[in-house]
Amino acid sequence: MEVVDPQQLGMFTEGELMSVGMDTFIHRIDSTEVIYQPRRKRAKLIGKYLMGDLLGEGSYGKVKEVLDSETLCRRAVKILKKKKLRRIPNGEANVKKEIQLLRRLRHKNVIQLVDVLYNEEKQKMYMVMEYCVCGMQEMLDSVPEKRFPVCQAHGYFCQLIDGLEYLHSQGIVHKDIKPGNLLLTTGGTLKISDLGVAEALHPFAADDTCRTSQGSPAFQPPEIANGLDTFSGFKVDIWSAGVTLYNITTGLYPFEGDNIYKLFENIGKGSYAIPGDCGPPLSDLLKGMLEYEPAKRFSIRQIRQHSWFRKKHPPAEAPVPIPPSPDTKDRWRSMTVVPYLEDLHGADEDEDLFDIEDDIIYTQDFTVPGQVPEEEASHNGQRRGLPKAVCMNGTEAAQLSTKSRAEGRAPNPARKACSASSKIRRLSACKQQ
Rank of each mutant, 00 (worst) to 15 (best):
R409M: 08
K287I: 09
Q305A: 10
T244I: 03
R103W: 03
S401A: 13
L72V: 08
R310I: 14
A241P: 03
P281A: 04
D343M: 14
I424V: 10
Q214S: 04
K83V: 06
T212G: 10
I361K: 03
C151L: 02
S59V: 13
I99M: 06
C210I: 07
D348H: 08
A153E: 01
T402D: 08
S299I: 09
P369S: 13
S142G: 15
T367I: 11
D355V: 07
G187L: 09
A414K: 13
E317I: 14
T244K: 02
G233W: 08
R40S: 05
C430W: 06
L55Q: 14
Q214Y: 08
P280I: 10
T249A: 02
E317S: 03
V337L: 05
L190W: 01
S142N: 08
K403C: 03
Q399L: 10
T209P: 09
L54Y: 12
L55G: 13
A153W: 00
D162C: 09
E57L: 05
S419K: 11
I79W: 00
C134A: 07
G242F: 00
N226M: 02
L245H: 00
T395C: 15
G188D: 11
E223K: 01
R384G: 09
A318R: 11
E92Y: 10
N412P: 14
L55C: 12
R426S: 13
P315Q: 10
Y246A: 06
C132F: 01
P413K: 13
T402L: 09
V116A: 01
M392I: 11
T328V: 10
I192C: 12
E374G: 07
P413W: 05
V390S: 12
M18L: 07
Q137K: 04
W332G: 13
E357F: 05
K41G: 09
T13P: 14
F231G: 08
Y272P: 11
S193K: 01
E92F: 14
N259M: 10
L184S: 03
T395W: 15
K44W: 10
K64W: 11
F234Y: 04
D207P: 06
F234V: 08
C278L: 06
F204Y: 03
T230Q: 11
L245M: 02
T212N: 02
N94F: 03
Q214M: 15
R425N: 15
E351Q: 09
S419A: 11
I356A: 12
K312L: 10
P314Y: 05
L85E: 15
L55M: 05
P275I: 08
V95R: 06
F366G: 13
I46E: 14
A273T: 12
F354I: 10
T363I: 04
A198W: 08
S271D: 15
D327H: 08
R39H: 07
M129T: 05
T32K: 04
I274S: 05
R425L: 11
G288V: 02
Y272E: 09
E407P: 14
H345P: 09
F298L: 03
Q382M: 13
D327W: 14
Y292D: 07
C132M: 10
A410G: 09
T328S: 11
L164H: 01
Y156T: 07
R74S: 02
Q100E: 09
N109S: 02
E92I: 00
D30V: 01
V95D: 13
G346M: 14
K191W: 02
E293I: 08
R297T: 00
A420R: 13
A389S: 11
L117R: 07
S69G: 15
E138L: 07
A205L: 03
A377V: 10
V243L: 03
K64G: 02
G270D: 13
L290R: 00
T249L: 06
G370L: 11
T328R: 13
E92V: 06
P315E: 14
F25C: 15
T24H: 15
K48L: 10
T186A: 08
K296N: 07
R331Y: 10
K108D: 01
C278H: 06
K96G: 10
A417L: 13
S325D: 07
I361V: 14
I260V: 06
P413Y: 12
Y272N: 15
S283D: 09
Y272L: 03
S19E: 12
V243W: 03
Q159D: 07
L55D: 10
S404E: 10
T367A: 11
P38Y: 01
I274G: 06
Q305F: 13
E256R: 12
G381T: 15
M289A: 01
Q123S: 12
W332L: 13
G385M: 14
K84V: 01
V372T: 13
Q214D: 10
I322Y: 05
S213N: 15
R426T: 08
L245G: 00
P321L: 08
A295N: 09
S232E: 10
K122L: 11
L201A: 14
L105M: 08
D229F: 05
G408E: 13
N181D: 00
R103P: 05
R310S: 13
K48P: 11
K122F: 09
L17I: 04
Q123P: 02
A410H: 09
D284F: 03
L263S: 08
D176R: 00
W332V: 14
P411S: 09
L184G: 01
G10M: 13
F264S: 03
S283M: 09
Q100R: 10
N109K: 07
E396W: 12
D194S: 00
Y246L: 04
T212Q: 15
D348L: 10
D207R: 13
A43Y: 15
C210T: 10
I29G: 08
Q159N: 04
K311T: 10
D258E: 03
L245W: 00
E293T: 10
T13V: 14
P217V: 01
C391R: 14
L113V: 02
G242P: 00
L54V: 03
L195A: 08
K146G: 04
D327A: 09
E121W: 01
L195P: 12
H27V: 06
C158L: 04
G135V: 10
Y272M: 15
K287G: 09
E293V: 06
H306Y: 01
G58I: 00
L282V: 04
S421N: 14
L50M: 04
V197W: 09
S428C: 11
I267T: 07
P319C: 03
A218M: 10
V338S: 14
R331E: 07
